[in-house]
Design a protein around this nucleic acid. Structure first.
Lengths: 231, 231
DNA sequence: ATTATGATTTAGTGTATCCTAAACTATATA
DNA sequence: TATATAGTTTAGGATACACTAAATCATAAT
């Protein structure tokens, strides 16, 4: 199966690789063979081979033993895929009543098959949303993406009040758990305390006055923005 | 890319082959290597190879130099794909304002990526339609399909009044032309005359009293049901 | 009954993607 | 500085699909 993203013929996994590389770079992590392999659950040698192909096609620049950087072209493709994915997720939840934990896998498959027209129509039907249900920003058609200034919950100092902005997790089981706590993007809460060594985080959910303790991994995936205290 | 249709792992083209074979069988034509190759625009040797694979997987029975028959399993998969395709086409037109001539290609790609849940949700949103915009029956989830008794327009005797039921064509250009004549499924008209040797068919569109002459190939793709004259 | 023709299969390639095992490189530590 | 370890690449193989060219089979026509 191949799709046409602006006149270059890309296989399915090509697109997945570029997306994964983009995400790594966006998180400030170097996109090295091993980290890509981990992200895609693929062996390192397979990644090595694909990197060669991506590099031959001018989608990444590769420094052997160092890692890759997306070229402008590669970044364009990655952002297009991100847009597709996030529009699809939003559409599936809003219009077809998919549950929070089911959308990711569905979108993951559809994003390779959907035409630009379909994505455009879905976006239109949704009112061109700027964020998906997880709180992630949706790139525009021209490849612009908002980068909200957020901190991982693990980095929020105790005593601060924050708004949950992004739930950066896509594991169905964990998503169900997060949802069961009422932790959707937009929810406000107080950070009560941290365990030492960035262990579990204790929070007060402001609305229903409920106390929760979140494990470190989970807290790490929650991106928040601080609420300034007014005098 | 692979999809799980009831525990068998199927590649994209596998599904396309089964669909094509089903359609040939449904039209009463033998599913031979060459006819499959023609339907899928693929070389005959490639089809030969795929037939071997399909046969190994128990999806078709193959008699060398004769052709193939779908097994029950093969038919199940083919009908599932047909359902996916037709639900998708209907959804794209109804809910996302796709034009008649654009839906086919889009559905053709999406049908391999869509989950059963997605198809189910789309069907629900549409009110579980029994026919798609072309007038083709949509198989149920359990694989039942209606087979309306229709005749190709080329086989309708002159002088009869008919309802257009199925537009069995998917070429965008021809679909646009058909649409421009107002020939959607459900339209009633009188068959005025036939050219000899099953040449062009002359019809009166009943509603707007307009006369049209349809080429043979086009008339062949229009399936009609006769309206009995009441006394 | 033989042969010409057309349909089908086999043989041999090519590409994209995956894998494991082995070799190599870079780095951190003793 | 030497070496262990972690990270990366190479080598060699598998699978699913496509192709062309050549061989084989079936049948219809002489």
């Amino acid at each position: 199966m191949t799709a046409q993203i602006n006149s270059i013929d890309l296989g399915v996994s090509t697109e997945d690789y570029l997306k994964a590389i983009y995400k790594l770079e966006a998180h400030g992590q170097p996109a090295q063979t091993t980290s890509i392999a981990e992200a895609l659950q693929i062996s390192a040698p397979s990644v090595s081979g694909m990197i060669k192909r991506l590099s031959d096609n001018g989608l990444v620049e590769h420094q052997p033993y160092k890692g890759v950087h997306l070229t402008d072209e590669g970044r364009r493709v990655a952002l297009a895929m991100l847009r597709r994915h996030r529009i699809l997720e939003t559409y599936l939840m809003e219009k077809l009543k998919f549950s929070w934990d089911a959308v990711h896998a569905e979108a993951e498959r559809l994003e390779h098959a959907a035409s630009d027209l379909l994505i455009q129509r879905m976006a239109l039907a949704l009112g061109n949303p700027r964020f998906d249900p997880h709180g992630d920003p949706i790139p525009t058609e021209s490849g612009e993406i908002e980068t909200p200034l957020t901190v991982a919950l693990t980095d929020v100092p105790a005593g601060k009040r924050v708004v949950l902005v992004v739930v950066g997790d896509q594991d169905p089981a964990r998503l169900r758990f997060i949802e069961s706590l009422g932790l959707k993007p937009g929810v406000t809460f107080d950070v009560v305390s941290h365990q030492p060594f960035r262990g579990p985080v204790e929070i007060w959910l402001v609305a229903d006055r409920k106390n929760e303790v979140l494990g470190h991994e989970l807290a790490l995936s929650l991106q928040c923005s601080l609420i300034e205290e007014e005098a």
